[in-house]
């Protein structure tokens, strides 16, 4: 091969390699480690799992190591209803939250996209503004708002709408409020990106052909903003399934979420293998919608 041919190959590799190297180093490698721990047994030692792999032992040591790995932790997960409930509850909370986020985020994004062009950058900045403050602080602020003697109750009492403070903190309602609040920008921004690109003469054309505004929305605007809906939903659903901070701070003890289960297995019980198994299951739950999405995308491209 000629010199320039090699150069070209090298250049191409230099472009393609970094993302793969990144994924291998920061996703694949940690995942292999977690998977390996999830197949081990807990031990009161340092590190708190067995078997350990003896690098000096050669072939026999490797075989012994692999022989000691088993699916015991996954069996535990499957047989104990606590984990099932945590998983189902997480997915339910994530689904309901995603729907709520869509219902709130879509009108907001729509309004932003129809605002005067010179106003739009300001509106986008306002949506991103909360990120200037730490996530943790913002969730703590919600405690101050939602607690029995908090701002919300004071306000409602002052208006005379209620006579006794509402119990919101440490209920699933508080979790929904916190999650929807925290993830709203992630829903609004992709929706806004899709709607802002939309050619509004298409909506006019629909109305010209006899569609009232709601029908023009349903048959033209919504289908054309679907990529934004899917992107925003994935961007919210996936992290919400594994969300730990919000249910921990706002949800109280009776809100089951898989992220909290993982945390307590890891830190309270020091059962690293079981915690790792929960992490693997969580990953699988999250991968399903992504695979589903890719399938839809692939079919859409084929249809073209």
């Amino acid at each position: 091969m000629s010199r320039s041919g090699w150069r070209k190959r090298l250049a191409r590799a230099a472009v393609i390699l970094p993302p793969y190297a990144w994924l291998a180093a920061f996703f694949l490698l940690p995942f292999v480690i977690v998977l390996r721990i999830s197949l081990s047994d807990p031990a009161s030692a340092q590190p708190p799992y067995r078997p350990l792999f003896d690098w000096t032992g050669g072939w026999d040591a490797l075989m012994a190591f692999l022989g000691a790995l088993d699916l015991e932790n996954f069996e535990t997960l499957a047989s104990d209803s606590l984990y099932w409930e945590a998983a189902i509850s997480s997915v339910t909370i994530a689904l309901v939250s995603t729907v709520l986020l869509l219902l709130i985020g879509y009108p907001v994004a729509y309004g932003m996209a129809r605002a005067a062009p010179r106003l739009r950058p300001l509106l986008v900045a306002l949506v991103i503004l909360p990120f200037w403050t730490s996530f943790l602080i913002r969730v703590y602020a919600w405690i101050a708002i939602l607690k029995p003697e908090g701002l919300l109750n004071q306000f409602l009492l002052a208006l005379g709408l209620i006579s006794d403070p509402l119990t919101i903190l440490n209920t699933p309602t508080a979790v929904y409020i916190g999650v929807v609040y925290a993830y709203l920008p992630f829903m609004i921004l992709p929706l806004y990106a899709a709607l802002e690109r939309l050619d509004w003469t298409l909506v006019e054309a629909a109305q010209d052909l006899g569609s009232p505004p709601w029908k023009a929305f349903w048959t033209v605007t919504l289908p054309l903003s679907l990529p934004g809906v899917v992107a925003g939903s994935l961007l919210c659903f996936i992290p919400i399934v594994g969300e730990f901070v919000v249910p921990d701070l706002l949800g109280g003890s009776d809100t089951l979420m898989i992220g909290r289960t993982l945390w307590s297995e890891f830190f309270s019980n020091r059962d690293w293998p079981l915690a790792s198994a929960v992490a693997v299951v969580l990953l699988l739950i999250v991968v399903i919608p992504i695979v589903f999405y890719r399938e839809i995308e692939a079919r859409r491209w084929e249809a073209r």
Partner: peptide, 20 residues
């Protein structure tokens, strides 16, 4: 009278065909 109630149809300068 809103556009969808007018017995008038328009062919747009940009065609405005529904891409989907």
């Amino acid at each position: 009278v809103p556009p969808y109630r007018r017995p008038v149809n328009m062919m747009f300068q940009s065609y405005a065909l529904f891409p989907h």
